[in-house]
């Protein structure tokens, strides 16, 4: 039964990825601009290429990138390529391969987002559960209000405030970048420290708001759980407050949070595009913005495909994990 469901889920996953990939292929075809012409016009302006030759060059490049072939042919090529995670050559950063561009950006984003998300989830969930547990304490009401305010503010606005006060004014942290422009990336201690130093402000701006979001969500669930009959019975059983809080309250209230967490991971790739842009962080967000403004279709395809796969996988993950933490859906 369980196996059958997993199989069905995986098939659905493949279908979703296919449908989304197809949509992703055809949607940009509607764009009124030819990326090659765009790129060449841009080149003509900056490097003085004769404007009259642009049409001629366009044709040559169209042939080079295969854009002169019929749409359906390109569609099947596209499907074949993405199945092997080969997204071809970038137009904007020619002759770099899209796979390499993504490969360079992805670790930055994942490193920043996954660590921050896990830490915020742990802190936010605990604080939120405790805030509900001690609802009558003035301190916890104040904490809840502050968390509520933070949860409403977009990450990048907090980022701007942090940059202004802690980087520009106090000078404790660099204003932008993933590492100093003077150092060479490598697997050594001093570079690692530098990367960490650069990541503190972006991480903090995400964490402040998302701790608020997790805490407020958890607080609401915990309040609901506290009204459940089993909490009354647990109290009547004379259990220790610690056990009631952890095994009866938190254990039940956390269930929807876990679903949200898994779905949150699905959005890791684009979860903080603006934070990356604000901080000039060399991750997927900046790559996405760059490729869109330069009409670099192969790179856009690549990013979007990665995104769809992470979302679909995270949904599959929810389906697989949930029965393990909630016996009611196990049957």
């Amino acid at each position: 039964m369980y196996l059958q469901r997993i199989l069905k889920r995986i098939l659905t996953l493949l279908a979703v990825i296919w449908a989304a990939a197809t949509l992703n292929f055809f949607l940009p075809q509607l764009a009124p601009k030819n990326p090659i012409t765009e790129k060449l016009t841009q080149l003509a302006e900056t490097s003085g290429v004769d404007g009259n030759r642009i049409a001629e060059l366009t044709e040559a490049f169209n042939a080079r990138f295969g854009l002169d072939r019929p749409l359906w042919e390109r569609y099947f090529d596209y499907l074949g390529d993405i199945a092997t995670f080969d997204f071809g050559l970038s137009i904007a950063s020619y002759p770099a391969r899209v796979g390499d561009l993504i490969g360079a950006a992805l670790p930055w984003t994942i490193g920043l987002m996954v660590t921050t998300t896990l830490i915020s989830f742990a802190i936010g969930t605990l604080v939120g559960a405790y805030a509900a547990w001690r609802r009558d304490s003035v301190l916890m009401q104040a904490v809840s209000s502050v968390l509520m305010v933070f949860s409403a503010i977009p990450f990048y606005l907090i980022g701007l405030v942090l940059i202004y006060f802690l980087a520009a004014k106090a000078g404790w942290f660099p204003i932008s970048g993933g590492y100093s422009i003077f150092s060479i990336p490598g697997w050594n201690w001093s570079f690692a420290v530098e990367v960490f130093h650069h990541s503190i402000l972006p991480a903090l701006s995400i964490a402040i708001a998302s701790i608020g979001i997790w805490a407020i969500g958890m607080r609401g669930m915990m309040v609901t759980v506290q009204g459940e009959d089993y909490m009354t019975f647990a109290k009547a059983k004379g259990l220790t407050p610690r056990r009631i809080f952890l095994r009866y309250g938190l254990r039940n209230a956390i269930l929807p949070q876990v679903t949200t967490l898994a779905l949150f991971f699905g959005q890791v790739v684009t979860g903080a595009v603006l934070v990356e842009i604000v901080f000039g962080y060399p991750g997927m967000g900046n790559l996405l913005l760059e490729s869109i403004t330069l009409f670099d279709y192969p790179t856009i395809y690549g990013i979007v495909f990665i995104l769809i796969v992470t979302i679909a996988v995270s949904m599959l993950l929810v389906d697989l994990i949930y029965p393990l933490i909630d016996p009611r859906v196990r049957t």
Partner: peptide, 18 residues
């Protein structure tokens, strides 16, 4: 459901860029 799973920012970025 499908539209809700794909991040809105992606759609919007593509459309407004066009």
């Amino acid at each position: 459901d499908v539209l809700l799973t794909v991040p809105a920012i992606l759609f919007l970025v593509i459309i407004s860029a066009m």
